[in-house]
Design a protein around this nucleic acid. Structure first.
Lengths: 348, 348
DNA sequence: TTGTACGCGTTATCAG
DNA sequence: CTGATAACGCGTACAA
């Protein structure tokens, strides 16, 4: 066991050549005598030697590493994004460096500092902490942008200084509302997300606006709690279905994401409410478990795979500080939790 | 926008000091005159300068980075492990470098080469591809072990040359079988996993042995397919419940993992079979969605958080090539899919 | 209190 | 075809 890592000089000495020749062999340069090449290769193999990419990175100024900054890899939506990004990156000889920022923390100067310090080839921000309305954050990202290209999933703005990838949920949300309206639903609620519904992003605004278009009342005041996990969904449903008089309770639930929907479905079941007969539920993200909930969850698909892959592509082709907006339309995937498909009765 | 990264020399020149002094300021060395310190700091802040950790790594020979090698971050079990590992690593000033190896690929010399090239501080292998029975793989890991400490989740062996973390499922699996036996179940099957049930690791062996202990017949020949996702669970159930005559069909299903169980639950529901009345189902991994399936899924908890954290701790305290085995007992978390809890009738 | 010089492991350039 | 040398950006030992 060698405590000290074997270097190109160790290989060179042992093969009786110079370091430059070892490099040439490593790089398959044609200008090496076959005998020399073989001799060097044998030594390399004997040691299992691989040139230090740390040193290579320093020399080339290119780490071929992309930083993924996200709240938690445990959220399957982020995991999908990371997985897709990793596949794309790896196919191009790049790899991923993980940076989880727990939801209770935020992007600080320290975080940006350590991203800069890493001399990454790019940074991919996923998660709602990229709030482009906060000037301090904009400043931080501006600074970071001087060092590497940035892609962030966030609502588009003018002149962001980085590449913004955006899910356009508007069409899907309106479609969902209209769909449920057509089925006779008149009382809607959106559960989970930010504490104030209005802060839950474009999806909430589209939702509220579509209610207006359909001349439906705004969601009742039941004390929106927010949150992004199953527990949040449970609590919201509990609140809605117990604090409100029966005739005010919503019959259609749009969930901030599928995790919230999972908790909502469970709570409804526990309360003896049937989905979709008593309450319709729609999720968001179209996560892997949607086809397998009871009933299968109607959800909004975000083209996660494509988003993740194209983020890497943009990162690798973009000059630093380029402003751009990439929008992808989300689409409603209708399953059985919204009462659209017939046949669910068979499985009661 | 500076195309060239700003270096410590740029800062030094602009502040009218030497690079060493900049380092001192960066390191909060006490031996710097206050005036100098402030002057340097101002320049640093103005540039948003952060010293290149690539250069630091090269100099110190320590990348403070741990490689995570796994099949897919999309499996929530691995995501949990990575998340826990990341938290532990970050709290110690280390970070994680992701290396996904798709299930159809394996650990090759190339993979090991790029791990060595990265000069990682350690490697954490998670996923069933660490098959310690394969001599070629052992060789590869031996080589890797010369460069960095290794922790792998795999069955224990003598003298592995790295740290083996192991889930002891034996107790939980036997407990599950006995529990179901007590409830009157006599026909058991394990679904998902490796193509040959016997290759699905210790959990399968414990399962088969416990059947023997209870003097129950071995699972019928229904053509075990294997697999680790919901689709596999669906297919296995479909097979079991259609290819076999009714009196041979299993009434108790142990699933390779919770994803398989998710698919199984869904398929059973679709076929009009009730869980747990007609068929009992038990999963494995105790993933986040278990409490929210219909009915809530009984599962085997793996202490994922603890496993992930302690893997990092071991990695950072272990000399290279140390052999060790860390075993943690898994435990059965009884919910409603195995018919243990009364009260499920309320929710039919 | 501050500056100089060298090493970390590699590759590119230039010379032979 | 092969070898010597500089440069990448930083920390550290030593000198002043």
């Amino acid at each position: 066991m060698s405590l000290k890592n074997v270097t190109i000089y160790d290989i060179a000495r042992e093969a009786g050549v110079s370091a430059a020749t070892v490099t040439r062999v490593l790089k398959n340069s044609p200008s090496v005598k076959e005998a020399t090449r073989e001799k060097v290769r044998r030594v390399i193999d004997a040691h299992g030697y691989a040139p230090s990419s740390v040193a290579q990175d320093l020399g080339s100024g290119n780490t071929k590493t992309i930083g993924m900054i996200l709240p938690s890899i445990r959220n399957p939506y982020y995991a999908d994004l990371v997985s897709a990004a990793d596949a794309e990156a790896r196919s191009r000889g790049y790899s991923l460096w993980l940076y989880q920022i727990p939801p209770e923390e935020e992007i600080t100067a320290g975080v940006v500092g350590s991203l800069i310090a890493r001399r990454l080839s790019g940074a991919f921000f996923i998660g709602s902490f990229v709030d482009v309305d906060r000037p301090d954050l904009r400043l931080l990202l501006d600074k970071l942008g001087k060092y590497m290209p940035i892609v962030a999933i966030c609502p588009p703005r003018e002149d962001l200084g980085f590449i913004c990838m955006y899910h356009n949920l508007d069409g899907a949300v309106r479609q969902a509302v209209r769909h449920l309206h057509l089925l006779g639903h008149r009382r809607f609620a959106m559960i989970g997300g930010a504490e104030r519904l209005e802060d839950s992003g474009a999806r909430a605004l589209s939702f509220l606006d579509e209610l207006r278009v359909l001349d439906l009342p705004a969601p009742p005041e039941y004390g929106h709690l927010g949150g992004g996990d199953p527990a949040a969904g449970q609590q919201e449903v509990l609140r809605l279905m117990t604090r409100l008089p029966k005739e005010q309770r919503p019959t259609a639930l749009l969930c901030y994401n599928d995790l919230v929907a999972l908790g909502a479905l469970h709570q409804l079941r526990q309360m003896g409410l049937r989905v979709p007969e008593d309450v319709a539920v729609i999720g968001c993200d179209n996560q892997f478990f949607c086809p397998f909930t009871a009933p299968p969850l109607t959800s909004i698909d975000m083209q996660t795979e494509e988003h993740g892959r194209s983020a890497i592509r943009e990162l690798l082709s973009a000059p630093k500080n380029r402003s751009a907006t990439i929008v992808r339309d989300a689409s409603l995937i209708i399953r059985e939790s919204c009462g659209a498909k017939l046949g669910w009765q068979d499985r009661g």
